[in-house]
Design a binder for these strands. Sequence first.
DNA 1: AAATACTGACTGAGTGACCAGTTAATTTCT
DNA 2: AGAAATTAACTGGTCACTCAGTCAGTATTT
Lengths: 223, 223
Amino acid sequence: MGQKSAKAAGVETLSTAKESRFDAILDSAETVFARSGYEGATMREIAERAGVAQGLIHYHFKTKEVLFEAMVSRRSKQINEGRAALLDRIMEQGETPDLEPIVEALFRPTIEAGISQASNGGAFAQILVSTANSAQEREQLLTEKYYDPIAQKFISAFMEVQPGLTRANAVWAYMFAIGVGMTMMAKTGRPARLSDGLCNDGDADEMLIKIVPFICSGIRALS
Amino acid sequence: MGQKSAKAAGVETLSTAKESRFDAILDSAETVFARSGYEGATMREIAERAGVAQGLIHYHFKTKEVLFEAMVSRRSKQINEGRAALLDRIMEQGETPDLEPIVEALFRPTIEAGISQASNGGAFAQILVSTANSAQEREQLLTEKYYDPIAQKFISAFMEVQPGLTRANAVWAYMFAIGVGMTMMAKTGRPARLSDGLCNDGDADEMLIKIVPFICSGIRALS
DNA sequence: AAATACTGACTGAGTGACCAGTTAATTTCT
DNA sequence: AGAAATTAACTGGTCACTCAGTCAGTATTT
């Protein structure tokens, strides 16, 4: 999988660099899958939004399912490299690290992957949420393939800094942490509705300030 | 909305009572929507599983969207009546109640609505999860209509038993609690995978023992 | 010229919705 | 009470439309 030439070794690496149609399709897919879900999204709409003929998508990705996985693969690799880098830097210091920065390392790269692609309003985060919560096989296989390995790293980190935590409880802790994080990524607008505008799930930094202590305290309760 | 005759005042109120086709359609819809999502589900499959002609669904519910809402409405009313009853009983006692039973009241009726309908394996819980996390308008309107009112009750209860909790933090606490609960309802099988079978998200009681202390500790951290 | 990138018209398999007509239940009239 | 009229429940077939995927052919690059 992957593009054949990718404007090989081109001089243009600026943010203004005209991206390849290959990447334009993936960007468009991200937006459309996020808004409409896997079944609801249509190849036609993805093509239109990317400004290419529908046939080109099939030329590059063969099927809708392959396109979906390629889109997940691209962004999740970027995110999980960031998460692994942050976690490694935290864990390789001399003394036992705090829990807080570990939990923050869990979420920050996902948030930043969303806002750098400013236009699409955290589209991938929404795909992540529905993928992670799905009981369907396609989504579970993607979670297993792209997210279980990094999950194991965080679970081990939890156990390392919280010696009282059994492996089972560390796994529960990880799952609960992800569950809390979902409320930040889903962007449902519900917090604002329930609080008459006091809370805003659009501001990730505001949420992290609440989420990190909540989760860390929860994890310590399981230790 | 609602069935017209419903075997009026029939003698049979047993669990073996042959249900109406109207309810059979709603049951089938629950299963199919849970497995395939809104777009992925087809009226034909819902009809087949219910053992009725496809036209009958349109006769009773007019459109797919109306059917979906009717299905959500039926089950969510049942669940939220249970939640309100439990919460009221906790709050009307003399002294300040503990946080723990309140959090448990948040989840138990949902769990029990799932297992009583033994056959469908918590189908509605999965619909709940995807509805609550959706950024799509249809799902958000349903959440607002059927779940925001009871949410406000629990938010008030949080503030009542945790005097240090501001309204904003109580809303966050509610959102995070729901987020954690999702990991129990989604039935992804991921906990088992991540723990080599140590953890099992099929057993709701096992999960509640972990979830309740996690959430309560988290809420106290925001107080 | 050879390979790669790309187009746009096309296909067959569904899709939700619709409807004319049939059967079952309930109400009204005698 | 029993026939007639009315309404509700239900069926099977069909409609217009949309879907993912295909393909012959054209442009672009190497």
